[in-house]
């Protein structure tokens, strides 16, 4: 039996989790104060995921950049691919919060969406 310590990143409480594993499988999770902690521990040790936030350029907007995010979490290993995938994107203003910037980024099934309203200039 193997034991691992994690910090839950779901919320600012940052609960210290203790996870026991057997044959790569999560057996018990302790230290969490809510069910999301257990779910996080299981995922973190089998398929860790993260929400990625970044920026893309905007043409003709009151701001030069619009912030974006992955609509939900994507596999940790795809973070840099995801950033590369939006490297050359240039949106036309206006941009609205929630607008899909890039669908199904890197085959994750997750969309990149805008997180900022950027009105058109003038």
């Amino acid at each position: 039996m193997e034991e691992k310590n994690l910090i839950c990143i779901n919320c600012p409480l940052g609960c210290p989790l203790t996870v026991t594993l057997e044959g790569g499988e999560v057996k018990t999770v302790t230290g969490n104060t809510c069910p999301r902690g257990e779910a996080y521990a299981k995922k973190e040790l089998t398929n860790p995921t993260r929400i990625v936030t970044s920026t893309v350029k905007v043409k003709g907007g009151k701001l030069a950049m619009a912030s974006v995010k992955t609509a939900t979490d994507i596999p940790k290993g795809k973070i840099f691919d995801c950033v590369k995938a939006i490297q050359d994107i240039e949106l036309e203003a206006p941009v609205a919060i929630g607008q899909v910037v890039l669908a199904d980024v890197c085959g994750t099934g997750v969309d990149i969406v805008a997180t900022k309203n950027v009105p058109a200039r003038g």
Binding site: P12, I51, T53, S54, S67, K69, I97, T115, K116, N117
Partner: peptide, 25 residues
């Protein structure tokens, strides 16, 4: 908040995880 484009805002207020500009929005 407009420059805090990372997520982690709003879990308490809106029960969902938002970025800074979304929370401000």
């Amino acid at each position: 908040l407009n420059q805090c484009i990372h997520n982690g805002f709003g879990l308490h207020t809106f029960k969902e995880e938002l970025t800074g500009p979304e929370y401000a929005g």
